[in-house]
């Protein structure tokens, strides 16, 4: 019994310490970005790796999810004779929920795990240590550009995802199922409100991007530098990011859309 209390106290303290470490780490990463020419070049390089390289998977999945939404929405709405509302359904679903959430999940799988593995490998091969010994702060040189790159890329990816998804929905419902395209767009425009839906969706994307990148770079930086450590940390990145995204999505949705 005493042993149990001792153990749970210990893991509680460990958890608090990890949260503290992660927060200090986050703070240093945020302020660590240098906006000199060299810093911007590093940032651009990371945006390329985190954002641009995730573009293909985002566009393809966005297209398919939009098409599925169009198809499903049409088959239900056509029973009520209101298949012209398929546009507003696709757009609202994508802009409010699926855009940010699915992008964040894909982002965690595609970019987050890569970030963790890359930083972990740099740690395992002592590249981070040797950088420290050269008097270069790896938080500034390695972590900060990656963190900011994720933070910037995520809303962009989410916006592209929603746009492509809406086109996918249009492709199916207008071109294939024959919904009148004027009604498709005008119903959408009547239903989607910029301040409420689009902005809130973007806020979600920003929050998710922040959380996912934070988890990814911290797991990479804090891992045990062995091959098991790297694989465990990569798994943790994906699991923790996905769970945080879904949990936070519920919270944000309750705050943003629950009140009306």
């Amino acid at each position: 019994m005493i042993d149990f209390i001792r153990r749970s106290g210990r893991s509680g303290l460990d958890f608090c310490a990890a949260v503290g470490r992660a927060s200090i780490f986050l703070l240093r990463a945020i302020v660590g970005l240098s906006l000199s020419g060299k810093g911007l070049k590093l940032l651009a390089r990371q945006i390329y790796r985190v954002g641009v390289l995730s573009l293909i998977i985002i566009i393809v999945s966005g297209l398919f999810i939009g098409m599925v939404l169009g198809l499903q929405g049409y088959s239900i709405l056509v029973d009520y004779g209101s298949e012209q509302a398929v546009g507003q359904m696709v757009a609202l679903t994508l802009v409010r929920e699926l855009g940010p959430v699915v992008t964040a999940l894909l982002f965690a799988g595609r970019a987050g795990s890569a970030l963790t593995a890359e930083i972990g490998l740099m740690k395992a091969t002592e590249q981070l240590s040797s950088m420290e010994m050269m008097g270069v702060d790896p938080l500034k040189r390695v972590i900060a550009p990656r963190f900011w790159a994720g933070f910037i890329s995520m809303p962009i990816l989410a916006a592209i995802f929603s746009m492509v998804g809406i086109f996918g929905g249009m492709l199916i419902s207008v071109d294939w199922l024959g919904v009148y395209d004027g009604a498709f767009w005008s119903n959408m425009q009547k239903a989607v409100e910029f301040n409420n839906d689009v902005i809130n969706g973007m806020i979600k994307a920003v929050v998710f991007g922040w959380v996912c990148t934070w988890i990814a770079v911290f797991q990479g930086y804090d891992l045990v530098p062995t091959s098991e450590g790297i694989s465990a940390a990569t798994t943790k990145t994906v699991v923790y990011s996905s769970l945080s995204v879904l949990g936070l999505d519920f919270l944000l949705t309750a705050v943003m859309f629950g009140g009306i």
Partner: peptide, 21 residues
């Protein structure tokens, strides 16, 4: 990277003008 950022801006404008009217 520049094209990527511009694409993102374009998507935002699209969401603002075409989708939310």
């Amino acid at each position: 990277v520049g094209v990527f950022i511009l694409l993102g801006a374009l998507a935002m404008v699209f969401l603002a003008l075409q989708v939310s009217g």
